[in-house]
Amino acid sequence: MKLKQLESLLGNLQQFDNPKIELEQYPTGAHIASRMLYTAENSFGDVSNKVVADFGCGCGTLGLAATLLDAEHVIGLDVDDESLEIASINAEDLEVEMGLIQCEIKNLRWQGQIVDTVVMNPPFGTRKKGADMEFLSTALKVASQAVYSLHKTTTREHIKRAALRDYGASSAELRYDLPKQYKFHKKKDVDIAVDLWRFVPKPKHESSS
């Protein structure tokens, strides 16, 4: 599938009717989502024929992008049932299969090493401090191959240090496949610059995480 085609399909997805501020529900735009997954697939082979989890999936944009790029099994996880409902409708509209689980990412207990890749647009931790780090820490435990994640540019050094020192990443690199200052439209005139990261977890030996 071409990038333009992926972006266009994602652009037609239904987004939040009433975003919940406390959950930092910003829709993941079709532009950023298509580039994130396209990079994951075409530069690293982290999507097709893989098991992919979308943490904090919201309306399912990233996970659905993974299904469109031929991931074999995709699971979207979110705490909010209204979001999961929309994600489920979006999957139906695209005629793809995406598994959904209602849970809190930080309380997730995962068995084995089945998930290859985690993709996520986590809460930035502006409402609940540390929410972004809880997502990242869990993602690095669950993924066996790679984690793709968006984080505020202002937290760049902190993210890198925590990933490498505390969360068991063997590498943390910035991907410049996005325009340098990608803007998240939060309010009419307030934008947030974000980075696209690719983290590689260290090989794991335990049977559970």
């Binding site: 699971i75 689980i101 084995g112």
Partner: peptide, 22 residues
């Protein structure tokens, strides 16, 4: 829910040691 998903999920209640399989 596919059984592949079931194969990864474990009971996540505090204090539970053998939460798998559900």
């Amino acid at each position: 829910m596919r059984l592949l998903t079931h194969n990864m999920l474990s009971s996540n209640i505090k204090g539970v040691i053998n939460g798998f399989p559900l």
